[in-house]
C-alpha cells in the first residue's frame, strides 16, 4: 500500500546506496588513479588523499611517456582514432546490412528462417579464438590482414547478430496492420519500410546501434591478432603501458578514462531513445 514507514525508507535508501557503491566503486577508483603518479598509486595502504596531477593525460596526448628507464613514444591518440574509425564503420555497415535483414526475419516466416536467424546469433556464443585462427591465415593470403576493411569485416561478427536480434524484436512489435494500412492506402513496400517500419523501430535501431558500438569499441582480441600497431584500437593500445620497466598504472587509468568517455557520453545521450521505446500509443494491444 502507499503508506511506508520512516524505517522502511531508511532501509531502502541504505540498500540502494550499497548497490550503487558496489558497482560504481571501480570506476571511481580508476578516475582517481588517472590523476596520480605511479608512486602514489602503489603505496600501501592505499589512500584517498593525494596531490592530483595531469601528467598522465599530458603524456597520452603528447605521445611521450617518461619513465625511470627513459622516455618512450606511444601512439595513444592514434589508437583512439582507430577505435573511432573501426567502431563507427562497423556499426554503420552492420546497420545497413542488419536492419533490412531483421525486417525480413520479422515479417517473412519462411522455411528455415528461424534456423538462419539462430545461426547468426550463435556466432555470439562461440569463443572468438575459434574463428580467429583460420581467419588470420585467410586474411594474410587475400591481403585483408592489417587493413581497416578486414577488421570491420571481422567486427561484423560482433555487431551484426546483435543488431539483427534486437531490431527484429522491435519490428515484430509493430502491428502488421499498421503496415498493411499504409500499403492499402496505396504505397509500395519500399515506401512502407522507409516511412512506417523504420521510423517506428527507430528507438530500437538506435539502442541496438549503441550497444553494437560499445561492444565494438570494447573489443580486444580481434584487433590484437589481426592488426599491427598503426591499426590498433585503444583497448590493444593500452598494452603499451605494460613496459619493460613496470606497469604504468597512472597512464593505463587515464587511457581507460579517455576510452570510456565516448561510450559513456553516447549512452547518456541516447538514454532518452532507449526509454522512449515503442510506446507511441496509437495501436491498441
Amino acid at each position: 500500500m502507499e503508506h511506508t514507514s520512516a524505517l522502511e525508507r531508511v532501509l531502502r535508501g541504505a540498500a540502494l546506496s550499497a548497490v550503487v557503491l558496489f558497482f560504481m566503486f571501480p570506476i571511481f577508483w580508476i578516475v582517481l588513479m588517472s590523476f596520480q603518479t605511479n608512486e602514489t598509486i602503489l603505496r600501501s595502504p592505499p589512500s584517498m588523499v593525494f596531490e592530483p596531477t595531469l601528467s598522465n593525460y599530458v603524456a597520452l596526448i603528447t605521445g611521450r611517456l617518461e619513465t625511470q628507464a627513459g622516455s618512450l613514444d606511444i601512439d595513444f591518440m592514434r589508437n583512439l582514432m582507430n577505435s573511432v574509425i573501426l567502431s563507427v564503420s562497423s556499426v554503420a555497415l552492420a546497420l545497413v546490412l542488419g536492419v533490412p535483414a531483421a525486417y525480413a526475419f520479422a515479417r517473412h516466416k519462411f522455411r528455415g528462417s528461424e534456423d538462419i536467424a539462430f545461426t547468426l546469433l550463435s556466432f555470439r556464443f562461440a569463443p572468438p579464438l575459434l574463428v580467429l585462427l583460420p581467419l588470420t591465415l585467410y586474411f594474410q593470403q587475400i591481403g585483408l590482414a592489417d587493413t581497416y576493411v578486414g577488421l570491420v569485416w571481422v567486427y561484423q561478427l560482433i555487431c551484426l547478430p546483435l543488431i539483427l536480434w534486437i531490431v527484429r524484436g522491435y519490428f515484430e512489435d509493430i502491428s502488421p496492420d499498421v503496415e498493411h494500412a499504409y500499403r492499402i492506402a496505396g504505397h509500395g513496400w519500399g515506401a512502407t519500410f522507409m516511412k512506417i517500419a523504420l521510423p517506428l523501430a527507430g528507438p530500437g535501431i538506435a539502442a541496438a546501434g549503441l550497444l553494437a558500438f560499445i561492444f565494438a569499441w570494447n573489443n580486444f582480441i580481434f584487433a590484437l591478432v589481426l592488426a599491427s600497431a598503426d591499426k590498433q584500437p585503444v583497448t590493444v593500445g593500452a598494452l603499451a603501458f605494460v613496459t619493460a620497466s613496470g606497469i604504468q598504472y597512472g597512464q593505463i587509468a587515464a587511457a581507460v578514462v579517455l576510452s570510456i568517455a565516448p561510450t559513456l557520453a553516447l549512452a547518456l545521450y541516447a538514454q532518452r531513445y532507449l526509454v522512449e521505446g515503442l510506446s507511441l500509443g496509437a495501436v491498441k494491444g
Partner: peptide, 10 residues
Amino acid sequence: MAFQNFALFP
C-alpha cells in the same frame, strides 16, 4: 480499409 485496432500511424 478500417481496422479493428485502428492501425493509425503513431
